[in-house]
């Protein structure tokens, strides 16, 4: 670049004028920016978009030796096979129930926690609580699994030794009826504090003068909560809820896979864990890609519907 073009580039007015003279000259003038962007865009293209478009193998009888272009097209064969597969219903049911439990039990708690923290007047106490509750977010699922395993170990875990004789034989971790509660509770343990941050930020963004005015008018804490805090939180709540609904068929593979034992398949085998076992381990790529595609389509449709409903009822939406 010559000095004159640099001087021109320094003036925003000059840029707009240059843009008018054709996109190619504009591009050349600002090529440094586009060169900087190139690696990032290439990354997203290769590692985010390519796998998405790679989903077309759900319509192929994909064979690793024949490759993407050589494999035979089979239309909707895998989808038909999927819907006829007797265990598919169980996979869907487990996935949906775990997701619904997460929405009903795990989703409201961070909101409650943020509201409770908001009422604490001693700043030092508030900071201590926050420090303790944010920590588990930074521990891996493996660590959380390890901690749960130690606590719930049938032979000498903490729970077994405290509640000995309370039907802990065989170990809670290996029993299918306890699988879902364990997933939900360990999820709450790990993420409740962290998920509260966004609500704490939203509460901090509410102007204190609103509360003062409400107090003048004689509103007690409950009324203040109902008429000031809750409306202030509503946009954040709706956005997160919508995103969660869009991901209702992803119930957290990393966590569930680690906690899952064959004894708990009845209640805990979800679409993702099945995809991993059958797809990655057994090499049935096409049918498991069909599951992935099914998940994306359902997720997208649900997101659109939920967004409509949300805009219609609360006026909030993500687009």
């Amino acid at each position: 670049m010559t000095t004159t073009s640099l001087a021109k580039a320094a003036r925003p007015g000059a840029e707009r004028a240059a843009a008018g003279r054709g996109p190619w000259r504009y591009f050349l003038r600002h090529r440094a920016f586009y060169i900087m962007l190139a690696p990032g865009l290439l990354y997203f293209l290769v590692f985010k978009y390519l796998p998405l478009t790679g989903s077309f193998i759900a319509f192929q009888d994909f064979n690793i030796f024949k490759g993407f272009s050589g494999s035979e097209w089979v239309g909707l064969k895998w989808f038909r096979q999927l819907f006829q597969y007797p265990n598919f219903g169980r996979l869907i049911e487990n996935t949906l129930i775990i997701s619904l439990y997460q929405i009903v039990f795990a989703f409201p708690l961070p909101i409650l926690l943020a509201l409770m923290l908001n009422e604490v007047r001693q700043m030092a106490y508030k900071r201590i609580v926050q420090t303790v509750l944010y920590l588990p977010h930074f521990l891996s699922w493996t660590i959380v699994f390890g901690l749960s395993y130690m606590l719930l170990s049938p032979t000498n875990g903490l729970f077994a030794s405290i509640f000995s004789g309370m039907g802990a034989e065989g170990g809670i971790l290996q029993q299918s009826e306890y699988f879902r509660p364990i997933i939900i509770i360990s999820g709450i343990w790990k993420e409740m504090g962290w998920n509260a941050i966004i609500f704490i930020a939203a509460l901090a963004g509410i102007s204190p003068s609103l509360y003062e005015a409400a107090k003048m008018d004689g509103a007690n804490r409950w009324k203040q909560f109902l008429h000031i805090s809750l409306p202030g939180l509503l946009p954040a709540i709706m956005i997160l809820l919508l995103l969660k609904i869009g991901h209702i068929l992803d119930s957290g593979f990393e966590q569930i896979y680690q906690f899952l034992t064959p004894a708990a398949f009845e209640t805990g085998d979800v679409l993702d864990t099945y995809t991993y076992r059958v797809g990655i381990l057994q090499g049935q790529y096409s049918i498991t890609t069909a599951i992935g595609l099914f998940k994306s389509v359902i997720g997208f449709v649900l997101l659109v519907i939920a967004n409509r409903v949300s805009r219609w009822t609360t006026g909030e939406g993500i687009y």
Binding site: K48, I57, Y276, T288
Partner: peptide, 18 residues
């Protein structure tokens, strides 16, 4: 183009094949 990838995550099997 970038925000789209935050909503639609790459599916497991095609990612593995890539």
């Amino acid at each position: 183009f970038i925000i789209f990838t935050m909503i639609f995550q790459a599916p497991m099997v095609p990612m593995y094949l890539l």
